[in-house]
Amino acid sequence: MTEGSAITDELRSMIGMATEPVIMEVERGAIRRYADAIGDPNPLFSDVEYARNSRYGEVICPPGFFGWPLKRGGMMELLGTIGGALFRAGVPRILDGGVDYEFFLPIRAGDILTSHGKFADFREREGRTGKMLFITMETTYLNQNGDLVAKARSTLIAL
């Protein structure tokens, strides 16, 4: 944690860098296509009549779907910015390491979400094949009422 390589100093100075807010419309059709891609026939995601009679009153998103455009857009831009530092760190390859979601409210078709992403943290580790950096990106999602609906912490592995 204390080794102050030039790389970690440069990256450390970037912690907190944020994306522009991204506005996402949650459309029924997009939800249906997403659920269909997973192979999930749950009528809460696709059957308007069924969903209307459920406690949600409307089609909802499967966990992890937040409508279009995807957070990926804003995040990839941000990653592009810190990518230079990763490249100079000699770890230009980036792998998706996993994600940690916290859900607070259901997301319904017709909602308009705003996401804010940021470079939250990183740690350095010696792997079997050399240096690895674990990058944590954080995204929060608010709905049209300004309520927090979800938080995501994604781990990217740079090596």
Partner: peptide
């Protein structure tokens, strides 16, 4: 996510999912 939402049914709520 599919595993969990099927299991908890319409009356359950998924609070956290990590992998």
């Amino acid at each position: 996510g599919h595993l969990m939402t099927d299991w908890i049914g319409d009356g359950g709520f998924l609070k956290k999912l990590a992998c």
